[in-house]
Amino acid sequence: MAAGELAVGMIARMLRGVEIAAVARNAGFDCLYIDLEHNSFSLETVGQISIAATALGITPVVRVPGLDPAQISRTLETGAQGIIIPHMETRADAEKVVEAAKFPPLGNRSLLGINPHTLFKGGPAAEIMEKMNRETLVAGMIESMTAVENADEIAAVEGIDMLLVGTNDLCNSLGVPGQHDHAGVREAYAHVAATCRRHGKFLGVGGLNSRPEIAKEMIGLGAHYVSAGSDTGFLMSAATATAQLYRDKG
């Protein structure tokens, strides 16, 4: 993303083995988005997948369940190279997250010098903290009209790297569930995109894997990241299509 390229992510919600990292890499994804908001993965599972992904050259990022500082820091300690925070609504939320996710001087995260994030390579504390601050992605999800209205204040917080629009919950907030092509959704995306450009932050697109034509439209606003689908969705889609193939007559 730093080079201006689009990063494409695969969400992991079902497959718990390290094999998912190899699947994502060889399918051509740039990162593996491990979703702790909508499944029951343990931190041990997150750690194993994260270490495998890092070793294979695919970036592991984790959506944590909420704003709990302990959950954020412990997730990063497993080896995740980024965190995604659901339902970030205010500047105060953003500041709280940065405090937990970044080392001094940006935040107040405690340093474990030999850690999975660096594949257990040590070094001087100041260098490790500077490197990990630079390489740890912190993304806030914009999933409501309140968050859209506060996007400028959220993006202004140093240490927030990306605003990721969660389209499904945004639709719910607008009172138009499932209407991904609603004008209000497009307006919200345009506003968040302009905010990201103004503050030099990345724009992320989420929740549009079932509507790739709309996703590409939103990417056209300058997005640097898109969630392209989940292991569950890919499996069900392929399995359903294959079963139907054998049932079709002719």
Rank of each mutant, 00 (worst) to 15 (best):
A24C: 10
T146L: 14
M141V: 09
A188N: 02
D152K: 06
I142P: 00
V226N: 00
G9S: 13
E44S: 10
Y189S: 03
T240M: 12
G17C: 11
A55V: 06
N26K: 10
L106W: 05
G28H: 09
T136F: 02
D161T: 03
R197N: 06
G47M: 03
V18K: 12
M14D: 14
H117M: 12
A151M: 09
A22C: 10
I34M: 12
A156L: 04
N108W: 05
A24M: 08
M14A: 14
M218K: 06
L36W: 04
T118C: 05
T75W: 09
T242C: 10
G79F: 05
E5V: 07
F202R: 07
A12T: 13
K131A: 04
Y225H: 07
Y225C: 02
A151L: 11
V205G: 01
L137Q: 05
G159I: 07
L119T: 04
S144L: 10
A125F: 04
T195H: 04
M132E: 14
L170E: 05
V148H: 03
D68C: 07
N26A: 08
K201N: 01
I72H: 01
G140F: 00
R91W: 04
M218Q: 11
A126E: 12
V226F: 02
M141Q: 12
N108E: 14
E95T: 01
N39K: 05
G57V: 11
E213H: 10
F103L: 11
P177V: 05
A126F: 03
A21V: 09
C171W: 01
V192N: 07
I128Y: 00
V46G: 04
A193R: 02
N209S: 15
F41C: 09
E19R: 07
A228G: 03
P124K: 01
R74N: 12
L203P: 00
S73A: 15
S144Y: 04
I72N: 00
G123T: 11
Y33I: 09
G204F: 00
G123E: 11
D93Q: 05
I85N: 00
R134D: 10
E187K: 15
E158F: 02
G220P: 08
A21P: 06
A188D: 04
V205N: 00
P86L: 07
K121H: 09
R134N: 12
I114D: 11
G206W: 00
N26S: 12
R13I: 10
A92P: 02
G206P: 02
V138R: 06
